[in-house]
Design a protein around this nucleic acid. Structure first.
Lengths: 214, 214
DNA sequence: TAGATTGTTAATCGATTAACAATC
DNA sequence: TAGATTGTTAATCGATTAACAATC
């Protein structure tokens, strides 16, 4: 436990968590690496290796205790203490993310949105405030917000990124289809729809050596 | 040219393309691997290797011709012949994707949406039809649709996946936070927001050995 | 020509998988 | 006990990077 974990393994952990949470609580008190792997299309050795960074272990013959494993993954990923975030760009995608209740289960809480368009300001359907960009830095610093979500069109994204950095944000979740330049201490996670489409499009064009799921 | 390409390289190609398209057409008639890499945060050797699967080559001292490179990447990714898609789940996220004009540039054309809720049916703001699920198989077969986009809540996603497969779809773009079981000849690309959040959340919790951008 | 830049072959690095001993 | 399942060490595989020859 508390060992190094690869970037790939880190990104598989939420998948384990999703699946474990979906199990009926009463029945499945324990689960084997093999069963978990089968459910998600991973090999059992990989599952054990992944879980070894997180849990202090299953029991031979029994497997892992489901409830413990859920708790261990949540705690490893920091989902048990909520991260506040702000979102910039209250267009359709921005509003969809603002309204999505599911982020709570991943420890993400979007506290407010910002938009440069005065028409967009006010309370969103989600009940969250959409504020002018001029209020961003002050709010972020006051609330110690560390995550910024960018859902503006590509040409505006770099400017928004700069403003978020200036507001003291530590990590950026970028939905704009463009590469952002940010100081090296700021983590940027790109939600790369174009890359996904490339994989889909290519898989239709030629069947050779494509994995089934990605 | 026309060589094997790794899955990672495949997913970087759209990033090159995005950047190249964003350049002012008149000025930059050519670009070096180094300049491209600098713009996107990749090493120049990686850029050359990636492009070697796609283009029939740059010229020493000059680099790649921007216009040719754009055309070569588009053609390699199949963006020049448009793929029709259907979308299932006309909630907020579904509607955001329906309205997004940018997919055209990646060769994706969503021709219609489906929803099980009768209230949701009719013309969307985007001008696209939202139809009952009962019409899906017929429409997909008639139009030879090969891509299905899933934007329903997790518990409904597997059923929708099965229905898409039954409708003759060949590739699935899954936005539901759940793993799908599909026949092995069907390619499934998961848009994994939970995995992204894991990376962000972890980067805030501990600074050690995290890449800056992902 | 010299220098910038290319493409490729070989070395390195990191992630996955196989093999196997430990244990309930 | 035998068998299922664990965790870890070593081998394999694949992707990235370094080194270098080719060329405009």
């Amino acid at each position: 436990m508390a060992k190094a974990i690869s970037m790939q393994a880190l990104q598989r952990l939420p998948l384990y968590l999703q699946y474990l949470r979906s199990l009926p609580a009463e029945n499945e008190t324990n689960i084997s690496a093999k069963a978990l792997g089968n459910a998600l299309g991973f090999g059992e050795i990989q599952v054990r290796k992944d879980l070894s960074s997180v849990s202090d272990g299953g029991k031979p013959k029994i497997g892992y205790l489901t409830a413990d494993l859920i708790r261990d993954i949540e705690s490893f990923l920091g989902y048990d203490n909520v991260n506040d975030a702000v979102l910039v760009g209250a267009g359709k995608l921005g509003k969809a993310l603002l309204s999505y209740q599911g982020f709570r289960a991943y420890g993400l809480n979007i506290i407010a949105a910002f938009d440069r368009n005065p028409e967009a300001l006010g309370k969103d359907e989600s009940g969250k405030q959409i504020l002018p960009l001029s209020k961003m830095e002050n709010l972020c610093r006051r609330m110690k917000v560390e995550i910024g979500i960018i859902t503006v069109p590509a040409p505006e994204a770099q400017g928004v990124c700069d403003a978020l950095v200036k507001s003291g944000i530590k990590a950026i979740w970028n939905f704009a289809p463009t590469h952002l330049k940010a100081p090296k201490e700021i983590m940027v996670k790109n939600e790369n729809m174009a890359a996904s489409l490339a994989v889909l499009s290519k898989s239709l064009a030629k069947k050779e050596n494509m994995p089934q799921q990605i």
